[in-house]
Design a protein around this nucleic acid. Structure first.
Length: 198
DNA sequence: GCAGGGATTTTCT
DNA sequence: GAAAATCCCTGCG
């Protein structure tokens, strides 16, 4: 690991306003070191799920067995199963007990592409991480990783490389929800070819 | 290229 | 019983 890679993001990065943290996460690099190898992807699309006044958030009706990790301290992972077969990876934000998180929706594959293709089945690089279920599969993230501390360990986040410029951020509606659907809490790098959708 | 449907767990009505 | 923070395959243009 070179000096340029930087140190993992610390807990303070994830604390506080969820929408601000969501925007700050764009450009950061998600790293997972597994037995099979290391995969890295740059975050290019996220969605914020707030602790209050957000009926679309899994935390809206309080803790359950499934969403318990959402109420951990900021900087932990919340990984859940959706539609019975896909995993979605979230980063807990705000404060412990609040129940706020940022869903990672798309990555630009940076390292370990062969392993990603192996996990996903032979696919074009564009199809490896262009969706929340896809990136969880490509990065090897499952409910086994639910509740992990992301500030130290095999799964962590690195800041953008010095000099990296992401360009303008676009806000739009969150995908696949019916409650509070009009709120623009999805953030993506504008005109990014790695996003889950235009 | 786009529309439709199936897979399958958790939660709520 | 149905919907959900999804993806993939099929069929048709």
């Amino acid at each position: 690991m070179s000096v340029r890679a930087g140190r993992p993001l610390e807990r303070a990065f994830f604390r506080g306003d969820t929408q601000s943290v969501a925007e700050k996460l764009l450009g950061a690099r998600l790293v997972h070191t597994a037995l099979e190898g290391t995969t890295i992807g740059r975050i290019v699309e996220v969605e914020a799920y707030l602790a209050e006044d957000d009926p679309a958030s899994h935390s809206a009706r309080g803790p359950t067995d499934r969403n318990a990790s959402m109420f951990l301290a900021p900087g932990h992972a919340y990984v859940y199963l959706i539609y019975g077969l896909h995993h979605c990876f979230n980063v807990v934000t705000a404060r412990a007990g609040a129940g706020a998180a940022v869903l990672i929706r798309a990555l630009e594959p940076l390292a370990g592409l062969e392993l990603m293709m192996e996990r996903r089945g032979a696919l074009r690089p564009r199809d490896l991480c262009s969706g929340p279920g896809k990136l969880a599969q490509a990065m090897g993230l499952t409910r086994a990783h639910d509740g992990r501390d992301l500030t130290s360990g095999a799964i962590h986040l690195l800041p953008p490389e010095p000099g990296w410029r992401g360009g303008p951020v676009a806000a739009s509606r969150r995908v696949g929800i019916s409650k509070a659907a009009e709120r623009e809490l999805r953030y993506s790098l504008a005109s990014c070819p790695w996003s889950s959708r235009p």
